[in-house]
Design a protein around this nucleic acid. Structure first.
Lengths: 194, 194
DNA sequence: CTTTCTCCAACAATCGTTTGGTACGCCATT
DNA sequence: AATGGCGTACCAAACGATTGTTGGAGAAAG
């Protein structure tokens, strides 16, 4: 049987996250992971059942957590614009900072999961997307947000925020919160000097 | 020696684009490509020198063309806002429509190229980015665009447009130009009513 | 003494690439 | 018109290396 807790398990998962991030799922071998941890590649199977399951578990957690947290924001009693503000701030913090690597892996390697696992992940992401969408729709309905296609608006916002994993350097000049503030200003007020 | 023209070559490259897009570089074997084309996998080497070179050539063309075209837009005698408008329209058309698959491959698989090839691609992308940046800076300087960090603004725009390859369906309700128009409206005027 | 952990060898399958051979069609010379 | 040579296009087999995974043996830990 396999153990799914303990120090070694965490070490293996952390190494997998690091390597999947750098070389993708198919570009990383069990050998690569084992070497980095300092054990034989067969020994990894004491802790996990398969490489695929490993990928699934890495991606699953932040995705579940993400939806849960966003839902709470959506359910708060706040004006839609404030909700949107909070949602963007959370998204940036959660996906571009805390779970930056997992986001990258999710975006690039979910497609390599078997259909069963893939479906579970994609459903969760759809729920996340729909929650974002509902905030935008609420804003339009209440007359706070312009009547632009809410789906496109959602994709635009998720696009600019998700993109951060490709360029944002943790040791850069701006903090993630500062970036989020600029994004929010841009999204709400636009670039034009009126 | 290898031939780099002719019908078969094009067929092989097109198949590679299709499969790399669907299963990534490391998830696609020469066998996969050969099977789809209907030849032996060894036969592919009559047309190319290596799998890596193949990836490089697939990614190279749209990236070179992209910079060239954007540069022309930047050099036109137009107000910055008009340039920005055109740049976004071009970007969406070029990368999200005409070379959608190559963009996806470029974004996800450039990291698997050898350092030599990787550097060439990344340099070209930097040039593209800097050209976009210079349009924003020009707009700020002339007082047409708000004084937000121009780098962040550039990344925000490139993020929302590049993201399209993940959600935009060619057979959807909106044309790519219509999406671009919504993006531009959003970027220039923001979402806030009033 | 049992459970947890790891080594080590082996597995069938597949990887990218090389090689030698062989059809086939085009062109120039007989 | 027949001949010989040449380059293109592809087959088919083999190369060594590596893939994810399994299982048995034994060390370490409690």
């Amino acid at each position: 049987m396999t153990t799914t807790s303990g120090e070694r398990y965490a070490e293996i998962i952390d190494t997998a996250i690091k390597l999947f991030r750098k070389k993708n799922y198919h570009g990383t071998s069990m050998q690569d992971i084992a070497e980095e941890v300092g054990i034989y590649r067969g020994s990894i199977y004491h802790y996990i059942n398969s490489k695929e399951e490993m990928l699934y578990h890495i991606v699953k957690r932040p995705v579940l957590k993400g939806f849960e947290s966003l839902k709470k924001i959506q359910e708060e009693d706040l004006p839609p614009i404030q909700k949107l503000r909070r949602a963007i701030e959370y998204h940036v913090r959660h996906y571009s900072m805390e779970h930056r690597a997992e986001l990258a892996i999710m975006l690039e390697d979910t497609k390599h999961l078997s259909e069963k696992y893939q479906k579970l992940i994609r459903e969760e992401l759809k729920k996340y997307e729909r929650t974002f969408l509902s905030i935008i729709k609420e804003g339009i309905q209440k007359g706070d947000i312009k009547e632009l296609d809410p789906k496109i608006v959602t994709f635009a916002i998720l696009g600019m925020t998700n993109w951060m994993y490709r360029w944002y350097a943790v040791d850069g000049i701006l903090s993630a919160n500062e970036v989020a503030d600029i994004f929010i200003d841009m999204i709400l007020n636009g670039l034009l000097v009126e």
